[in-house]
């Protein structure tokens, strides 16, 4: 268990360090990207649905996988659309 706590705390420190000098224009895309990344909870949803052996478990699992997939896919698509516009504008300049 101590190894698990170690991993979590190190991840928090990396998260604090990795975002420091972000220009204002990137705040919105960055928020959207981190939003997509926490969709990694879909991993948990797959584990739940994969091991579901009751009706209740299946219902919970299906909802968790659906929510998680929407979070991941929608999040990445929206972020990419935002960044695409930045890129083309900067390119023309």
């Amino acid at each position: 268990m101590i190894a698990v706590v170690t991993i979590f705390i190190l991840a928090i420190f990396v998260g604090l360090e990795v975002i420091s000098k972000v220009p204002m224009t990137l705040h919105t895309p960055l928020m959207s990207a981190t939003n997509a990344i926490h969709g990694v909870v879909l991993v948990g949803g797959i584990l739940v649905l994969g091991q579901a052996h009751s009706v209740g478990g299946i219902v919970i699992g299906v909802l968790a996988v659906l929510f998680g997939t929407l979070n991941v896919v929608g999040g990445f698509v929206v972020t990419d659309r935002m960044l695409e516009m930045f890129k083309s504008k900067r390119g023309k300049r």
């Binding site: 698990v4 991993i7 979590f8 705390i9 190190l10 991840a11 928090i12 420190f13 990396v14 998260g15 604090l16 990795v18 975002i19 420091s20 972000v22 705040h27 960055l30 928020m31 981190t34 939003n35 990344i37 926490h38 990694v40 909870v41």
Partner: peptide, 14 residues
Amino acid sequence: LIGGGLVGASGLIL
């Protein structure tokens, strides 16, 4: 653990 911890911390900074 890592994905969640990263976003939890970076989201707060943001």
